[in-house]
Structures are given as C-alpha cells and as structure tokens.
Design a protein around this nucleic acid. Structure first.
Length: 483
DNA sequence: TGGGGTTAT
DNA sequence: ATAACCC
C-alpha cells in the first residue's frame, strides 16, 4: 500500500490550505471565548498560499534536555558535575544525565532513588517560577525565527518554519543546491538527494534547527534536541531519536520506518492511557494493528472523530496546524499533601495559593474573569482520577480592583473560593483532601484607552458610571455563581 | 505520581 | 464540569 503523505494531502479539500492560523482544530476559538491573547486575535483571516508550499510544511520540534535540572544547574553551577535530581514531594520528577548514568529515572520515588544512588543531590522543584520564566524565554527566542510557535508543556515547542525555508530556498536560487548540507542526523541514515526539492527543504530545516539550538545555548545556556519533519507528529517522534543534545531530520521515505519503530500504540502522541486501554480490549497493541484495523468498527468503538484521528496518526499523518500559543489561557497554583481535613486548614491553603496567583497575574498584566477551585478527595483506590472542581465568574467590582494591590482582592476571592469549596464538601461531615488547586482563567487584557482603540470605545460605552449597570453585572455574576 | 498546561464534549 | 490529552 502506498503511503499517503504529500500527494494525498495536496488533494484534500480541507481548510488546511489557509495558512497555519488561529482557528484550527487545536485552537478552538469560539466567538465568546474572548481570549485577549494578541497572537490569537491578531489577523482576521488566513491568507491563501499556493498549493505547493502548503503541501509540504517544515516543522521543528524542540525538546530541552532534562529541563528543570538544567535550570537548577544554571542557577548553581556547583551542581554541574554531580548527580542531580529535582524533587517534588516524594518524587524525583527529573534528573540530569549524571544521575541517569547511575540508574535514576524520571518520576522515580525519592526512596528508590536514594537507595539506588545515595550520593544523589536533590533540589526542591515544587515552585515552578524559575522554570516557567525560562520556558517563556525559550518560546520567545524561537518566535524570532517564526511567529508560529506552539508550546507543549514547559520544555517543548513546535515551530512552523515553512515560510523561512521558502525564503532561504529562493535566496539560494536554482543553480547551486549542491552547496547545502544537512545539519545533525538523518533518520535511518537515509541518503539525501539534493535534487529532490522536498529533501532540500528539510535539509534547510535542519540548518535552521541547528541555528535554534545554537541560539538556545549561546543566549540561554540550554541544550536540547530538535526534530525536523513535515508535520508535528513526525517532528516530535524524530526529535527523540538521538537523545541528549542532538537533532534529527526525517525524510519522507523513512516515515514508515519511524512510525513502525514504535513498539506500542501508547507511544503515539495523542493516544493516551485511556484509548490505549480501549484499543487493547479490541486486541490492538502495535501501530500496525491500528493501521490495518477496520475503520468502521473503530468508529463504533471510539466515535468517528477519535477513530479517524488516531488512525491517521498511526500512518504518521497529522494535518493539525502549529497554533501559536501566545500568553497562557489560564494560571493555576496547586499543592498536594497527605491530609487536609478542617475548614481552617483549607482556608489557609487557599490563601497561600491565591497570594501566589495574585503575584503572577499582576505581572501578567491581564485580569482573570473566572476563578476555579479544584480538590482531590482521599481514596486508596483510584488515586489520580478523583478530582472535582467548581468555578464561577469573578464579580466585576473585584475584577476592576485587580491592578490596585493584592489585598483588595485577596479577601473577597477567598470568600468566593470558600463558597465554591462548600459546594463540593459538606463541612459538617468529616472529609480528607489530598490536593487543592486554584485557577484563574478567562484572562482578558484590560482595555487600553488609546483614542481609536477598541478599549477606548468599550470604556466610552460602559464608564458613564451607571452604577445601575454595575449592579446588574454584579447580580448576574452572583446568579451565575448560585450564591 | 508532581505541578502544571490544553482542547473536546 | 468533566474527561481526555500533553509535559
């Protein structure tokens, strides 16, 4: 069977022939979703690009080496040559390569790690502030290469460099393609054909990836891997093939081998724990199993949308655009613990979480319009699934006080959160929590009052201090919250 | 099994 | 609000 990548996509009657643009399947920008992220609302409509340049995208996936450990080592160079683990509660969530040589794995318990390696140095990584800051520096650096940068967690990014590649290709002119050479590994050691335009594009992509890694090292002191391929799925898979601090490019002829090298469907990004289990019940375990399984039965079992999606993934097909992440959609702060079982304890924890969040949101510059409280109840079985949450709009009179100093908003928000808490927990009955989390979402830029801006007219229509209108808004918020 | 994030339903 | 996914 013929492997359906470039040609099949070129004929697809999908709206993918709009440039990678907000509004794709991963961005989910509802009309009322009101994200104020400049990236997402910037340009109104996708511009049409010629079918040829759209058919073959060039995507880079970057993946920093043991990110938290690297950040810690930058902060304290003494740790460089020692085995280092980053600890959250009783887990070693990541570790440097010195530690890996000695058998330490990610997400190993502190007990096992110490047992395996008594000299292991541990630093506490429960406060993510420094990691988050470095993470955004990385994303911003990559945005200098292309505006299409999508974050995946704190340490990975996808970059769509199709247009950059096209520009360099045009500069190169048709005469001398023989001067270009690949940077880093070629997956499968496949031979590059310099007369193949698709190869040339990916080779230029590999050079850009090398420049990205150079810049990350020179300017931020960070090392990491990169993968270059024609879509996000493949770039991510190929970036992991040579592991610390190396890069790999995938040429289309080796696509089957790459996807076939996965030893289980669970290794396909996008097939998670749950669907892997359901697929196993259908007798599917290898990627090949999924490729050849009846689409009709799969659709009945998982629903049309998931079935079609994961079956495409099994062929290495992924037409999802690189959606610029922009600023975060939500800010949250959480803490887990052995036991929290009284209302006063809960209130204290909430105050702590909130104080941190308020600091963060004031630096962010935007204002949250909704707040959520999440809890995890103790349960011996099913430890990581039993989370519940309640959310409500933040009353507008509180939103307005957001720039003005945290203590004006802290007390009323604690009040709101305690009410949300009481919706989930009968405080007169015994309870046992193991996690609390507070999340701000629905983040909106506060209107700037430059004449002619949206914010100016927004302010014009709402500021004639009609306190009636404000009261209406407040009352509506409270109705929404079921106070 | 942490402390975050995202999108789909 | 939950459920799935990602790190």
């Amino acid at each position: 069977m013929h492997f359906p990548e470039a040609e099949a996509e070129a004929e697809a009657a999908e709206p993918d022939w709009l440039c990678p643009e907000p509004g794709g399947p991963w961005s989910h920008e509802g009309p009322g979703s009101s994200s104020s992220a400049p990236f997402r609302t910037q340009s109104g409509h996708g511009k049409r690009v010629p079918a040829e340049s759209r058919a073959q995208r060039v995507i880079v996936h970057t993946d920093l080496d043991c990110f938290y450990a690297q950040v810690e080592m930058i902060h304290n160079p003494e740790l460089r040559d020692k085995p280092l683990g980053v600890q959250q509660k009783y887990l070693v969530v990541t570790c440097n390569y010195e530690a890996r040589k000695l058998g330490i794995k990610k997400l190993m318990s502190v007990r096992d790690a110490k047992e395996k390696c008594p000299q292991l140095v541990l630093v506490n990584g429960e406060d993510l502030t420094q990691y988050r800051e470095m993470s955004y520096k990385v994303t911003e650096l990559l945005e200098e290469f292309s505006p299409f940068v999508e974050r995946l967690g704190f340490d990975e990014n996808f970059v769509d460099i199709t247009e950059l590649v096209e520009r360099r290709l045009a500069q190169l002119q048709r005469d001398d393609c023989s001067k270009v050479s690949v940077s880093g590994h070629v997956y499968n050691n496949q031979t590059v054909n310099l007369h193949d335009v698709i190869h040339i594009r990916l080779v230029i992509g590999s050079q850009i990836a090398a420049e990205m890694r150079e810049a990350l090292y020179n300017r931020l002191g960070l090392t990491g891997c990169a993968g270059v391929a024609s879509n996000k799925l493949l770039s991510k898979l190929v970036s992991g093939t040579f592991k610390p601090n190396q890069q790999t490019v995938l040429l289309p002829e080796s696509c089957r081998d790459l996807i076939g090298s996965l030893d289980h469907i669970r290794k396909v990004p996008g097939i998670g724990y749950k669907t892997a289990k359901r697929l196993e019940l259908l007798g599917l375990s290898s990627v090949r199993d999924l490729q050849t399984f009846s689409p009709v039965i799969l659709e009945k079992e998982l629903g049309v949308s998931i079935a079609q999606h994961i079956q495409k993934l099994s062929y290495g097909e992924d037409d999802s655009p690189v959606t610029p992440s922009g600023p975060p959609q939500s800010l949250s702060d959480e803490d887990s613990f052995k036991k929290c079982s009284s209302e006063v304890e809960v209130k204290k924890k909430i105050e702590e979480l909130l104080a941190n969040l308020l600091d963060r949101i004031s630096k962010d510059g935007r204002k949250p319009h909704t707040v959520r409280l999440t809890i995890r109840k103790f349960s011996s079985t099913n430890k990581w699934f039993n989370r519940e949450s309640r959310q409500c709009p933040i009353p507008s009179h509180i939103i307005q006080k957001f720039g003005t100093g945290n203590h004006y908003v802290l007390a009323p928000l604690v009040g709101i959160l305690m009410k949300l808490f009481k919706k989930m927990i009968k405080v007169e009955l015994p309870f046992h929590l193991t996690l609390l989390s507070v999340c701000f979402s629905n983040l909106k830029a506060f209107p700037s009052l430059t004449k002619g801006s949206i914010g100016f007219y927004l302010a014009q229509s709402s500021s004639p201090a009609s306190s009636d209108k404000k009261m209406e808004a407040v009352l509506q918020d409270q109705v929404n919250c079921n106070f």
